[in-house]
């Protein structure tokens, strides 16, 4: 399933978040969280440093609680593979404001670059579509990424799933905050919720 003309993960993430407005962004464990941090720290970012397989479900809970706010989950192929069932759960709930973007380098970059299932046999776009997410696409160009950045602001047409085959080069880590209590409460504060 390897392709040529692979996109740069930092450019993709930056393009998705450049005009984010009120969008909430969730970064899956690993490089996706660094990519979101590299695009700029933001009160509405939820960075994950663990809970592998949980990024999409956190996005779903948030999307259902805040149906007028765009929610975008940006994660990797390994993290998505661990939570594939969540695509079926999302499809059933049909959150119009949820977008899921997989940055697919076909490898577990954080642990030594071991190849993942998407390098050979698994088609995550097909998985998402078969789970019932009708708007599931593979994106190959920055023009398509720019178009997704606009579409993800539409809170009525989701859920949507996109897989982007990216350059597998390991980039310099851009470390986000790691204190979950701070990150979560900062996000809640940005949405207008006070501490208990």
């Amino acid at each position: 399933m390897s392709r040529t003309n692979l996109l740069d993960r930092r450019e993709v993430t930056a393009a998705l978040l450049r005009d984010r407005k009120d969008a909430i962004a969730i970064g899956g464990l690993g490089a996706s969280t660094y990519d979101i941090a590299a695009a700029g720290d933001h009160d509405r970012n939820l960075y994950l440093w663990g809970a592998m397989g949980g990024a999409v479900m956190m996005g779903l809970g948030m999307a259902l609680a805040q149906p007028d706010t765009p929610v975008v989950v940006i994660t990797g192929d390994g993290e998505m593979l661990m939570g594939m069932g969540s695509l079926a759960t999302v499809a059933l709930q049909k959150p119009g404001n949820l977008s899921i973007v997989v940055l697919d380098n076909e490898a577990y970059g954080e642990t030594g670059g071991q190849v993942s299932h998407t390098s050979a046999t698994t088609d995550l776009v097909g998985v998402a579509r078969a789970c019932g997410i009708a708007d599931s696409r593979g994106l190959d160009t920055m023009a398509e990424i720019e178009a997704l950045a606009i579409r993800l602001q539409d809170v009525s047409a989701g859920p949507r799933f996109a897989s982007v085959k990216i350059d597998p080069a390991n980039l310099e880590r851009v470390l986000s905050h790691r204190d979950g209590i701070f990150i979560l409460n900062r996000l809640r504060g940005a949405l207008g919720f006070k501490p208990i």
């Binding site: 909430i24 939820l46 259902l64 759960t89 059933l92 979560l184 809640r188």
Partner: peptide, 26 residues
């Protein structure tokens, strides 16, 4: 209330984090 069927229970723990981040109890 919204009942949300899961494919596996761990999904529910992660879901409740998102719900709370978005201002809802679960």
């Amino acid at each position: 209330m919204r009942g949300i069927p899961l494919t596996t229970e761990e999904e529910g723990v992660a879901l409740l984090v998102g719900a709370w981040a978005g201002g809802q109890r679960g």
